[in-house]
Amino acid sequence: MWKASMNGQCAAESSAAAAATFTINAGDVKLKAALSEAATFNAIPSFSNLSLSLEKPGSFIVDYHAPKQDLRFQFMNSIRVLDKRLNMTYTHSRVEKNLLLDGTLVIDSSNKVTANCDFESGIRKLKYSYSHGGGDTTFEPCYDVSKNSWDFAAFQRIHGGDVVKASYQTSTKVLGLEWSRSSPFNGSFKVSASLNLAEEAKIPKLSAESTWDFEM
Score class of each variant (00 low, 15 high):
M216L: 15
C10T: 05
D213R: 11
S78H: 03
S210D: 01
F73E: 02
S51W: 03
Y130M: 06
A16V: 05
V174C: 08
G58Y: 07
Y168T: 07
L100E: 14
L35C: 04
H65N: 13
H159T: 14
F75H: 06
T89Q: 07
T23I: 15
S51D: 07
G135N: 07
A16W: 02
G27W: 07
L197V: 12
A11R: 13
I203P: 01
A38I: 00
S149T: 13
N116A: 12
G58E: 06
N186Y: 13
S207F: 08
C117Q: 14
L50C: 03
K190V: 12
K112W: 03
Q74I: 12
E13F: 02
V191K: 05
R85P: 00
S129R: 10
A193H: 10
L177G: 14
T89W: 00
T23P: 04
L197G: 11
T114I: 06
M76W: 00
S46D: 05
I24L: 15
K84L: 06
Q69R: 08
G8M: 13
A17H: 01
S167D: 11
L35M: 06
H132Y: 15
P184N: 07
M76D: 12
V163K: 10
L99R: 11
F75V: 15
T40I: 01
W2P: 03
N186A: 11
E200S: 12
I24T: 04
A193I: 06
V163T: 15
K32F: 00
A26L: 11
V191F: 13
S53G: 09
N111Q: 12
H65P: 00
G133A: 14
T104Q: 11
T172F: 04
I79G: 03
L71C: 05
M1F: 06
T104G: 02
A43M: 02
L82K: 03
W150T: 04
A43F: 00
K30F: 15
D162L: 12
G176H: 07
D162I: 12
T137A: 15
V62M: 09
E178H: 02
K205M: 09
T21D: 10
Y143T: 02
A18R: 01
G135K: 08
V145E: 07
D213L: 09
M1W: 04
S129E: 15
A16E: 05
E215V: 10
E140P: 00
P57E: 12
T170C: 10
E140L: 14
P141I: 10
P184K: 06
Q156R: 12
N25S: 09
W212Y: 13
D63L: 13
V81D: 03
R157T: 08
R124F: 02
S59Y: 01
V174I: 15
S78P: 00
L195D: 05
A16K: 03
T114R: 11
S149W: 01
L54C: 05
G133S: 12
D144P: 02
E199T: 08
G134V: 04
T137F: 15
K68S: 14
Q9D: 13
D102H: 09
I44R: 01
M76N: 13
M216K: 09
